[in-house]
Amino acid sequence: MVKITIDPLTRIEGHLRIEAQVEGGKVVDAWSSSTMWRGLEVIARDRDPRDIWLLMSRICGV
């Protein structure tokens, strides 16, 4: 049994880590983790609703 870790996963927006368990040439289990958090949902709390689109559009610039 081999465990493969790919971190960072490139050519995507954001930060992603993939771990895969390989048995006999087949992936039998896999885990993905997003390795970055800014907490925009926390930042949005108690703000003027009219401003939220400006804030949330910063989730992804792609």
């Binding site: 960072p8 490139t10 050519r11 995507i12 927006e13």
Partner: peptide, 13 residues
């Protein structure tokens, strides 16, 4: 550059 590079994982690092 993570978003545009071909390599990933250990190779990129």
């Amino acid at each position: 550059h993570e978003t545009v590079m071909a390599a990933a994982g250990h190779q990129s690092e």
